[in-house]
Design a binder for these strands. Structure first.
Lengths: 150, 150
DNA sequence: TATTGTTATACTCTATAACTATA
DNA sequence: TATAGTTATAGAGTATAACAATA
């Protein structure tokens, strides 16, 4: 009468469920890698582009915190996107140490992100699912983001 | 009358949905990295352990195909698990080129997998969700695995 | 000739540590 | 002294290429 199942707290085996999610995550990672072309935006690069588009200009330190990488790593990510002309940087108005990173016109072009081969494969794969299944993945995406950000 | 929405094919924006899944996936990857300790099983190592447990002994080439990495990479993965004593290998009964990789007693111990710090964090995070949300993630895991394997 | 597996080497992404400049 | 950012170096995971042994 004292375990979760007996108490009716949940009819799902959390241990099994989290392992399933973990294995699914790993398999998706490897599959996406095989579908990726060279010179394609990486996860973090894509995430930075999306964040700048929705949240507006931000500093390297802020981007690093939001995307859960070290500032040094984010510095490299931003430098790479800068070389591609997708983002630019401006001096911070009040703090001489910081830069404000922003999307350039080229970066704003949705096509730049949409051109991703990763997305092309995933678009196709998701289009083959039923609307109900698609909805599950949309809800799961939101849940995963909230889990990861908590 | 000719676009998907008008035809009632789906009320979900596939482009947006796949980007959401992609961004969620990336964020989960980075979060799990920050939660991971050193000397912990990697994604592929974990996947191989799980596969050997459910599918029985298999060859390196088969494992590589199933987990979508190159045979050379899987060779390294198996060699690593072998050093840890989690898997062993036997000569193939009929083909002298191949080995059959199998879980050792130590590997069979569920605790070996369960000891993962990744899983500990994810268990805790998933336990905090409602049963309905947990169910969504369980269903999404199955969908993602079928997408990745297709 | 094709396939299994190994060895050698390189690439991508990120981490840690040490440094400079500004607050 | 603390923080933003850079530079240098190292690590994990996987890829490609070249090779040996077996089918």
């Amino acid at each position: 009468m004292c375990n979760d199942a007996a108490m009716g707290k949940s009819n799902i085996d959390i241990e099994a469920a989290s392992l399933e999610l973990l294995l699914a995550h790993g398999q998706l990672s490897r599959r996406l890698r095989t579908e990726s072309a060279t010179h394609e935006l990486s996860w973090t690069q894509l995430a930075v582009m999306a964040r700048l588009a929705t949240e507006g200009p931000s500093t390297i330190a802020d981007l690093a915190r939001a995307e859960m990488v070290r500032p040094q790593s984010m510095g490299g990510t931003v430098a790479f996107l800068e070389e591609l002309g997708l983002v630019g940087r401006q001096a911070h108005p009040t703090d001489g140490r910081q830069y404000l990173v922003n999307l350039t016109e080229a970066g704003i072009e949705t096509r730049t992100i949409a051109a991703s081969v990763k997305r092309a494969w995933l678009n196709k794969a998701m289009a083959a699912l039923s609307p109900g299944e698609q909805e599950i993945l949309v809800k799961a995406s939101a849940l995963i983001r909230s889990l990861a950000g908590a």
